[in-house]
């Protein structure tokens, strides 16, 4: 594989994870981002390209707008390592981004509107 010359990547480098199985490249996320951090992919049907990752402010609008549920917001590492919790009964520690996380908690938000 060719090794290209790059300038340093912005930090954070990756702010969004696309589920390739679910994403159909509809670009609704591109057009819902207030900061315009993505552009449509030139490969038809492929996930968008995150061009201005460092301008993302992590509002999650793209995640909420994605009709396929294909998007996950990835907080920067300095945040993942800061958001820490401890199970009261066992003293076990967890954090956002940990290895081998427990099953997701599906506890719904209060309220009855979409």
């Amino acid at each position: 594989m060719a090794i290209y010359s790059y300038p340093s990547m912005p930090d954070p480098c990756k702010v969004l994870e696309f589920d390739k199985e679910k994403c159909v490249g509809c670009n609704i996320c591109v057009n819902s981002c207030p900061l315009d951090v993505m552009i449509p992919n030139f490969i038809k049907g492929a996930e968008p390209i995150v061009l201005f990752a460092e301008e993302c402010w992590f509002c999650g609008s793209c995640v909420q707008e994605c009709p396929a549920g294909a998007l996950t917001l990835i907080p920067p590492a300095l945040q993942r390592i800061s958001t820490v919790w401890k199970r009261k009964a066992t003293g076990e520690e967890f954090r956002m981004g940990m290895l081998n996380p427990p099953a997701p908690n599906l506890n719904p938000p209060a309220g009855n509107r979409k």
Partner: peptide
Amino acid sequence: LAHEGKCRVPIFENMQHWGFDPEQDMLQ
């Protein structure tokens, strides 16, 4: 927390995605 600005996805959903459970867990 589920309704405040910039909380639904980055905090409420993301933390629960990683397993946070307020019935069992204390937030540091």
